[in-house]
Design a protein around this nucleic acid. Structure first.
Lengths: 366, 366
DNA sequence: CACAATAAGCCAACGCTGTTGCGTTACGTC
DNA sequence: GACGTAACGCAACAGCGTTGGCTTATTGTG
């Protein structure tokens, strides 16, 4: 490896910025990139040369309008890199291989036993990763794992569920999987992974956005000013136990009126309208506090009744924000469907490798 | 001005990082800075040379422990720069001049007429700024203004209050004041200013923190991973109208059970315990969503009964987070007292000039 | 009191970044 | 076929932190 200079960070940030523009899929021109990055076209040439040397981008024809030399177009090379994403729940394991743009190349899904001991779990994860790795042909960058409940992405350890006894509590999943596969492993909260995945292929659109995930529980994740919010203890977005109704239904966590308990109970009673209102309450509080302009909804429980849910959330937002007419919040449905979290986990690997850096100075965040 | 190269951004970020360490007040050594910034001691020498050329830092004796050449110490020069901060409410104008470390050099306070037309308001602001500018001696960097309610810091325009008719609604305060004073002007939400002020003199401590301000209304502000959260419409932290009790007291905004209405009503009834519980509800929701590890309380309404308030918030947090034992949240009282917002407004000027940059690439954010 | 050992800091050369100025290439138009 | 135009490449440049060697100032030892 060549000696790491400080200017590598500038180059790296610019490379990532060009890739971010290019991964929208449309061919890009030198001039447009120069405007976007606020550098000279000549600098863009050097940046593109670096990216083409690494196989990440390629020329893509040219474009002529009027006199003069035609503009050369460049495009991202999706098949140049791959990443594996695994979505782990208590009863199922779902996995995908995705290319550099986050497109799914292959998917797998198996049921697992919730009581399964830790070594067997690791074997399942590793097995699916190895199988998925046989598809596609770009360089395999690593494996991402998304799972519900508290997770420590820095240490790569699962924190255990508060709502049930849990056989995997404290399992050092990243370390074990890394040893098994000899590939970089990223472990994170499911809804955080989902938001990374959702925004990977539409860079910039979700720079101030929240994603609310309704699966076995409720989870949220935030991207503010382009940066994913992890929080001081990596527990940002654990909104499942926010109290939405004082003295409401009892929750396994010991308190009453938790959003998650109310939501699941409403679903079980077949009252989609009520469930959607619980969801909408969480969303409204969140919008007030952090002022996002887009909210993405995802997860099995949402897909099952997505029309009712979206409509109820939109209505609750319009009602709750009616006094602040200048606050427009767009409510979107996830574009990834059931692959949402698995793709997101894969995109976390991509983001780590090719995403825009957050800070310029200080120690590496890993 | 010398031609702006891309490497200025690296240098600028490093200069800001060194200043951030130094503004804690204690003298700093080359080695310590090298560790903090992850660069070689030689680079620190160059950075310090630049900062000393600009008069921002100076040598501060030396320090010997054991054999070898003694370590040279450096300190920030607080008196090298000044900034003015103004805190505007509907009935009072409070102002300070602060030095580079955020220390107050002089303060002023006058009552104003809420119905006062816009030109008179600008004259009041400019008059106080000019008077404050006579104190202290460093270079005057600019004027910061903090005020309650919705504000657009990008355009420098006051958005108007939702709870009352407002003579200043839509006033382009920044443009008018800039024309009057010929100095850079920064306009922002009061609680956001307060958090900037609170964290300026203790860098790093409040990198994941929230500040809740209780004055005429309720406001919150967030700093996540070191970055102040402004939101898509610069309205992050407008939590005053979060609903804490369904079908509660009517609020001037038209809805019922808003945190602000409940809080003010409890205070008026002399029930500090209830008021504190309303505050605590807001804090608890906020901690769940963004996982901050420190919460700062400030504002007149808090100071009046700070023991009761702090205790109630601490109790509510301990109760609400009891199932998540690993989440430690420290509840602090503002260190700035009644100057909180005025100092914060001044520190916004300092932060703009000498604070750590947020992003590396893309267009300037102003 | 002289000397070595030690640690901090300076100087100069280096590789890398994006910038600048100027020449080259490829297109449309007359 | 000559001309104007716009995109692009080449080469020199300034400034960043790094590297390696040298200087400086203190402590400890004979």
């Amino acid at each position: 490896m060549r000696p790491t200079g400080p200017l590598d960070r500038v180059a790296g940030a610019h490379d990532a910025a060009v890739l971010a523009v290019a991964r929208r899929g449309e061919p890009v021109a030198r001039t447009g990139l120069a405007d976007a990055l606020q550098v000279t076209p000549q600098a863009i040439s050097k940046i593109l040369t670096r990216l083409m040397d690494r196989g990440l981008m390629a020329e893509s024809g040219s474009f002529s309008s009027g006199p003069g030399k035609p503009t050369t177009l460049y495009r991202i090379v999706p098949e140049s890199r791959r990443a594996i994403g695994l979505h782990l729940t208590r009863t199922r394991l779902h996995g995908v291989v995705a290319d550099l743009t986050g497109q799914v190349l292959e998917r797998r899904s198996v049921g697992i036993d919730p009581g399964r001991p830790e070594p067997a779990l690791i074997a399942d994860l590793a097995g699916m990763a190895r199988e998925l790795a046989r598809h596609g042909r770009g360089e395999l960058l690593g494996v991402g794992v998304g799972m519900p409940g508290p997770v420590d992405p820095v240490e790569g350890v699962y924190g255990g569920s508060t709502s049930s006894a849990d056989a995997w509590r404290g399992a050092p999943i990243r370390a074990l999987l890394l040893e098994e596969l000899a590939l970089p492993v990223h472990l994170d909260h499911d809804s955080r992974a989902a938001l990374v995945g959702e925004s990977w292929s539409q860079p910039g659109l979700l720079d101030n956005a929240a994603l609310v995930l309704a699966e076995e529980g409720l989870g949220a994740s935030l991207r503010l000013d382009g940066a994913i919010v992890r929080g001081a203890h990596s527990q940002a977005g654990e909104v499942g136990h926010t109290v939405v109704r004082l003295d409401g239904l009892p929750c396994p966590c010991g308190r009453r009126g938790c959003a998650q308990a109310e939501y699941l109970a409403a679903l079980e009673a077949g009252d989609q309208e009520l469930a959607a209102r619980v969801l909408a309450t969480v969303v409204l509080d969140l919008v007030r506090l952090v002022d996002v302009d887009r909210v993405v909804l995802g997860g099995r429980a949402v897909y099952a009744h997505h029309r009712v849910t979206m409509e109820a959330v939109r209505r609750a937002l319009a009602e709750g924000l009616r006094a602040d007419a200048q606050l427009h919040v767009e409510v979107l449905l996830s574009t990834r469907g059931v692959d949402l979290i698995a793709v997101g986990a894969a995109c976390q690997v991509l983001e780590h490798e090719y995403g825009l850096p957050t800070a310029l100075v200080g120690p590496e965040t890993g």
